[in-house]
Nucleic acid binder design. Structure first.
Lengths: 251, 251
DNA sequence: CGCCTGCGCTGATCCACATCAATGCATGCG
DNA sequence: CGCATGCATTGATGTGGATCAGCGCAGGCG
């Protein structure tokens, strides 16, 4: 089984352990495939061969850019990635944030070109999966195909969530709860968040003004729901915050 | 090649021809797969076996409902389908509209249950594809797998489009242009639209009030961009309408 | 026929959030 | 150091579209 590292103490920036031949990256997007019963060792080794570690993007550096020919999807290993569009007038539209273990680039399969930029928010490392190779492999390993289908399907649902006409309070609450859940999925504490992105990025992503994000966070803190210290946010009353986010999250 | 029907005259409600063993439904979601070089006849026959025609849903009837166990995706053959959520207080949230040839239910793969209702807006016929069977088949027919990946990926992009904070004018313009394009993709005229959905549904989908939809359509007509006759909309100046929609459509 | 119901349109009012503007506070750098 | 830059916060003002209310019109039905 290889060695297992404890994650609990790492808070600000979760780091994915490297794993080994057997366990692969333990928090990787394909972790569930690799550790699943029935996936033969050879397929797992092929997935290993196929993957390519790419490392040390600095804040602001692009993993891929709008319009580049689509060739691979990326799993975040360390750090946080944002995807965004920049329109002709230079205005930015933030599409999403990706934490360690999550897959970036799935929306590029159809147009066969990346429809957005993927930009590192802090120090970022990723795993690169050549998509043609991955698709070929997944015809032989149903578990991988299934995982890809699930990831794609999940992203459709997530994208639709944000589209509703929700209030600023609902959006912020859902954003924080959602981020916490995603950390928790990978084994990190759900109530001590570090926001790798600026207020402006959050606002842009939630379709609010940066000032509104400031004010709502402030009010949440005054109400005792959260504690804010710069980019560190502690969720003090998860249940009440969830109650605010319910219109978006729970259906 | 079988016989080819001319579509040009059909305006209000495009009807997909049945096709035959060779051509399958000519406007079907999997048309490109079936007609592609290299797809062997046996695979095509298997796809035929797998599909199940389900017909004559009346307006308001559900093809599937929120929470039902996911078992199949559906291709619209005739009519228009809307997907929607209904929250606890009975408020509706329209997620999308599906025209003949489009696939409904892709967002259900991940949760393994339908995350929304699919409701017929007029007389609707669909093709039912058992998803487990389709996934199995697609391990043997790369073209089908590829097509599924593409469709899923496309839906991610589409869902993200609506999420921006656009004006009512931009939204309506993009909605009309988008609808026209989708008709055109299936061989129907792009400038003579019949809206199967009510103003309320459009407004809900675009996150506007029904009154706003009325007013904007009225103004578009006054400006000579479109001609509105109840649920029939003719796009008089496609280029200018596109110009309005550019912030959403063109990137 | 008269009545009801659903849908679409229009005008008046209101409000959540954007926008504008100013300030504080880090960090970096010549 | 002195200055510039970027990010976050707070207050004052403006506005796009929601909400509320009323009306017209068509279709269905007893």
């Amino acid at each position: 089984m290889g060695y297992v590292t404890s994650h609990g103490r790492v808070i600000p920036n979760p780091i994915v352990d490297d794993g080994d031949e057997q366990a692969f990256c333990s928090t990787c997007a394909f972790g569930s495939v690799c550790t699943a019963r029935g996936v033969d060792k050879i397929a797992l080794r092929e997935l290993h061969c196929l993957v390519e570690h790419v490392g040390n993007y600095r804040p602001g550096e692009a993993i891929f850019r709008t319009g580049e020919r689509f060739g691979a999807i990326y799993a975040v290993r360390q750090g946080t990635v944002k995807t965004r569009l920049v329109d002709i007038e230079g205005r930015e539209l933030v599409l999403g944030f990706y934490l360690p273990g999550e897959l970036v680039g799935l929306n590029a399969i159809h147009p066969e070109a990346y429809p957005c930029d993927a930009v590192a928010l802090d120090t970022v490392e990723v795993c690169r999966f050549s998509f043609p190779a991955l698709a070929t492999l997944s015809t032989r390993v149903p578990g991988i195909q299934q995982e890809l289908f699930r990831r794609l399907s999940k992203d459709i649902g997530n994208a639709a969530l944000l589209a509703g006409d929700y209030s600023a309070d609902e959006r912020l609450a859902a954003f924080l709860i959602g981020l916490g859940r995603r950390y928790a999925e990978r084994g990190f504490p759900a109530e001590a968040l570090h926001l790798a992105m600026s207020r402006g990025d959050i606002a842009n992503y939630l379709r609010l003004a940066a000032e509104t994000v400031s004010r709502v966070l402030r009010r949440f803190q005054d109400q005792g729901l959260i504690r804010v210290d710069g980019r560190d946010v502690a969720i003090a009353r998860p249940a009440e915050l969830f109650e605010l986010a319910r219109p978006i999250l729970q259906r």
